[in-house]
Design a protein around this nucleic acid. Structure first.
Length: 420
RNA sequence: GUGGCCGUAGCUCAGUUGGCAGAGCGCAAGGUUGUGGUCCUUGAUGUCGCGGGUUCGAGCCCCGUCGGUCACCCCA
């Protein structure tokens, strides 16, 4: 029988790895809650229309990378390729941003799906930790998100981080910059890649992101985005820079930084980390002041980021960083003889009732083998029972690290271990 | 979607001009019929990714396909 493999580009997170995921998730939740964000969980699929309108029809992610299908009722459904659109939809749907002055700060954790060719740091299912803050237009909110993101990385032990920021400005500034780009690049259309020549019509900002040597050449001397900013947008960017500097956050302003989704306005940013391959961004974000209105809600400013968990773990591994492990100490029950095994089976129940992590081997192996298994399972203590102990109503408690063995009345062992 | 490299035991990998499928690690049992990590002995485990083709004979050559990996594209 042919064996069934996982679909291309997805990853199983096995027990030897899953503890790292839990460590990262724990840190993410702690940081989000310290910054007073609350968790939100939205579905992993939505109506296709949401991403077309929210993320943008002309983005690569939506136009050629979505998992889209008709469900049995004939509705067009798309597996979410990013987290923001669904969160905004939920905010509007549940009237959380319907009132004037409403503010909401939420975080999420979960999978995203993009139909791409897998490579280092790029999968068809990947996971993100993200936050979104609604209702606050001030640059403080942008910087709060950046600080939270950075603290999250630092708490995970990530090194070699660099932060780039830029501003696309409000809607008018963005349109103005678009026109500037078209004017600047149009004479060079013939020297650019076909993709970029096409983007000149559909999504000129994306051309700035191209690594094609022809496009890089064409973009030489391109005017930076901040030259097209309105006065208000300039002030917003200046304020964000000022706040970052005051917080001693190293960053650089990159006037040609752009991001893959159409909804961004004003501040955008990206964190790059050492230890990754060609896909070296661990996370990025930005402001999206027009998105809520664009999706049919009340006009509400918003800002947030998404951070890739796989990439974070990859960078941490490459940097040799150890994440904190929070396993309960394991107690392994060892027995000699059938009667002793029966007795241990009962003790196992008592230990577990007391909330202690305990296990034993149910096959009649030799004592030696039982210890080997205990060792392999990284047990901290063994409780040994044989004929002698059964007869005297005692157990032998062994500390596997020190090899120290102490006989105890059976009735005392649970309490003793609970105290450790 | 395009291109390079790679698919042999659970893992890492050898496998000669086409001629009996291998090693190390891991796993199991034993080395005082009651004590682990080191050491020693013995043992088990394969649809050589899958499907065709060439050949007396294919892990090896050819075609296809699936998967992995890296880069482009794009992004986390």
């Amino acid at each position: 029988m042919a064996q069934i493999q996982a679909p291309k580009g997805v990853m199983d997170i096995l027990p030897e790895e899953s503890w790292k995921w839990r460590a990262v998730e724990r840190i993410a939740r702690e940081m989000a809650e310290v910054y007073h964000f609350q968790e939100i969980r939205t579905p992993i699929f939505e109506h296709t229309e949401l991403f077309h309108r929210g993320v943008g029809e002309t983005t690569d992610v939506v136009s050629k990378e979505t998992y889209t299908f008709n469900d049995r009722g004939g509705r067009s459904i798309t597996l979410r390729p990013e987290g923001t659109a669904g969160v905004v939809r939920a905010m509007i749907e549940h009237s959380l941003i319907a009132q004037e002055g409403a503010r909401q700060k939420v975080y999420y954790f979960g999978p995203n799906f993009r139909y791409e060719r897998p490579q280092s740091g790029r999968l068809r299912q990947h996971h993100q930790f993200g936050v979104e803050a609604f209702g606050i237009a001030q640059a403080e909110q942008d910087v709060e998100c950046i600080l939270l993101q950075m603290d999250f990385y630092r708490r995970c032990g990530l090194k070699g981080l660099s932060l780039r920021i830029n501003s696309l400005g409000d809607g008018d500034s963005k349109t103005r910059y678009r026109d500037v780009l078209v004017k600047f690049l149009s004479p060079k259309t013939s020297q650019m890649s076909e993709d970029s020549a096409r983007r000149l019509e559909t999504n000129p900002l994306r051309i700035l992101d191209s690594k094609d040597p022809r496009d890089v050449e064409a973009c030489q001397g391109v005017p930076p985005a901040f030259e097209s900013l309105s006065e208000k947008s300039q002030r917003h960017l200046k304020r964000a820079e000022e706040l970052l500097a005051k917080a001693d956050v190293p960053f650089s302003v990159d006037g040609t930084l752009v991001r893959g989704f159409d909804y961004y306005t004003e501040t955008i940013w990206e964190f790059v980390a050492d230890g990754l391959g060609a896909q070296n961004a661990v996370g990025g974000g930005g402001r999206y002041d027009n998105l809520a209105e664009h999706l049919g809600g009340r006009a509400t400013p918003g800002v947030g980021f998404g951070s890739g968990i796989e990439r974070l773990l990859m960078a941490l591994a490459a940097q040799g960083v150890e994440l904190p492990r929070d396993a309960k100490p394991l107690i392994w029950l060892v027995s000699h003889g059938d009667a002793a095994r029966e007795s241990q089976w009962a003790l196992l129940r008592e230990l577990r009732d007391a909330g202690l992590a305990a296990d034993m081997d149910y096959s009649p192996r030799s004592i030696k083998s039982q210890f080997k298994v205990a060792d392999r399972e990284t047990a901290r203590f063994c409780i040994v029972v044989g004929e002698t102990e059964l007869a005297s109503g005692t157990v032998v408690l062994k500390d596997l690290a020190t090899r120290e063995q102490t006989p105890l009345p059976r009735g005392e062992v649970v309490g003793k271990l609970k105290a450790k």
